[in-house]
Design a protein around this nucleic acid. Structure first.
Lengths: 343, 343
DNA sequence: GGTGATATTGCAATCGATTGCAATAGTGTG
DNA sequence: CACACTATTGCAATCGATTGCAATATCACC
């Protein structure tokens, strides 16, 4: 006779063992002071001995709270592949930690899941108490729907101030402005912009790019903006193509992400273009690798730590009956070798 | 009077609207053929009109299935920071897609969450039907516990064949052997190993490293093995230190991950050491960035796609009463500039 | 028209925990 | 000693869906 693994204990089992009713057991386990201290202790001890764990499902059903947040990572419908940008991992890690810290679980949804109607799937079905949408996504009407339906949610993205829902994100425009102004300071006059402006965050960065150029008395040329996916690969390809076109007199590149920047840098170096002497480069995000490529990459650092914490705190505030507010996070220019020409 | 958002519909509401009992409505919604086709259609239509969604919590409670898998990312207790290696993101994305495809949700747990006792927290509490443990972790007694408790789970890690639980992972030993043999072919004689051998996967890679050296008639020197965290930063620091020590006559580096390799490469280049001419480098993982750094990084490609799919399929098989099997995935050497000395 | 087979539908229990309200015991006071 | 009050505990309903089994309706066939 094999020893069968102990069958899962239920509250009713514990109550019976402790010689009390289920209601008393339930209250005792949660240290409800209305229950006699001795009774409480006894029940708790028995529960511990039998490794009793509250059935989260039953509790959720009864209390109508799941203590779970769905995190949805949006990205290009075009490149149907899985999430790939290291930046996402960064912020995801922070969110995960913070949710845990607040006693919430995290339901993660990527790519194909997003075919679903999130509202129905996650909220109406009570799988989650709220949603965090991480979108370098293009404008998505599903977000508007969430808003209209009264679902508690927050978005990581471009806070333009015009959205009827809470958006938390970096000051993309200022970040880009800083980076491009820096490139100009280093003597760049023809600076390409690599990034897909159909994404609202990137659009902001493009505006910042234009701001900096205009401020420096340089007229932005639309031909220097190249729609580029969020991958090193596409950064490489776009740059390679540019080198074969009339854009070969570039002297600077501002990439909408570090991954793109690295791809671009690779293309330049392969063609014998010196970085930063002939072409200076700056990226955006400050992913871990940026400090360790060669030449190391100048970039705009996003405060993912503050961002993740803020996303969580605002969402929980909203869930608890308050209101979530949009917020723009300050960014910081990091100057490294890829853009520094002076010795 | 503000229009309140439509209150959530329950099965009972739908049943009433359709003029049938709850049981009939329930069966109709799941297209149970025992229900008259017309009734089914009517119920489904009414449900659709009212955007009815089954309450996942109630269903889980009744059916005793959550259709949720907890994915636990283990990593150094030492570096208490969030997940950071791009490789993790890769495999995580595949797992997420595959789980979705199979109709499961994914509960993600990282860092601090893992303080918890996973078995109680995720399984006993019925939050998840099974677990996927992603461990570049050091040996963890909690995994053994899972095994003993009969919890359905699979591990991504080092399949040595000795574990009493299913482990799926790359053939680390062979991969390292291929990479180091390649370095030897390129003329390297003193090859450092950067990686923390206390992690079982890395230990396998170290064995492969020794295999290749021995096969080439080179005696492995323990002093050339440097415990290194899974970060570019530590790869950089360890290499920098090595350069100041008696290890400065290295002519090759095999790093246990691409991130480490990139850090190492940075340290070398900064010191004016030519890669690959003076020191050739190879890494492990083939993360996206490896092809785009300069010089591009030779590495061992892990088949994350196959790995992720296998983890999911084996786990589900186990959940459905079958047995999950360990499996070793073939790897592939990718030769790039960081190790190729011939023109 | 009777009878058994078949097609549909509904009743009621169930999953496991939480909680409003009632019940009981115990204490103190006038 | 009665009465009010407090401290504890238990009863029973509830969350929303699923499902075994019984009930009813329909039909075919002899």
């Amino acid at each position: 006779m094999a020893i069968t693994p102990a069958k899962t204990m239920t509250l009713s089992d514990i109550a019976r063992l402790a010689g009390v009713s289920e209601s008393t057991a339930s209250r005792a386990l949660r240290d409800n002071p209305v229950i006699n201290a001795q009774t409480r202790q006894k029940v708790q001890q028995i529960a511990a001995e039998h490794q009793f764990k509250v059935n989260a499902t039953a509790r959720s059903l009864r209390t109508q709270k799941s203590y779970t947040i769905a995190v949805i990572i949006l990205f290009d419908a075009k490149t149907q592949q899985a999430i790939t940008d290291p930046f996402l991992l960064d912020i995801l890690g922070v969110i995960a930690d913070e949710l845990t810290h607040q006693g919430y679980d995290m339901l993660l949804s990527t790519s194909k899941t997003t075919d679903k109607d999130w509202r129905s799937y996650y909220f109406d079905s009570k799988r989650a108490d709220g949603l965090i949408v991480i979108g370098q996504g293009e404008h998505d009407e599903r977000v508007e729907q969430l808003s209209a339906a009264g679902v508690p949610f927050v978005v990581w993205g471009a806070a333009t101030g015009a959205e009827p829902f809470p958006v938390i994100g970096s000051d993309n425009r200022q970040g880009a402005q800083l980076a491009v102004a820096h490139l100009v300071t280093q003597g760049c006059k023809r600076i390409a912009f690599l990034g897909d402006v159909r994404h609202s965050e990137i659009e902001m960065r493009y505006l910042g790019y234009q701001d900096a150029l205009t401020a420096a008395g340089i007229k932005p040329e639309p031909a220097l903006q190249l729609n580029t996916d969020f991958t090193a690969q596409d950064g490489y390809l776009q740059t390679q193509q540019a080198l074969f076109k009339e854009l070969n007199n570039l002297d600077g590149i501002f990439a909408a992400s570090d991954a793109i920047a690295m791809g671009a840098m690779k293309a330049l170096l392969e063609h014998g273009v010196k970085v930063p002497q002939q072409v200076a480069i700056a990226g955006f995000d400050d992913i871990a690798m940026s400090a360790y490529c060669t030449p190391s990459l100048s970039t705009v650092k996003q405060d993912t730590h503050a961002g993740g914490k803020l996303l969580v705190s605002q969402l929980l505030q909203r869930i608890n009956g308050g209101k979530a507010a949009s917020q723009l996070l300050p960014v910081k220019l990091i100057e490294r070798q890829s853009s520094l020409r002076k010795q």
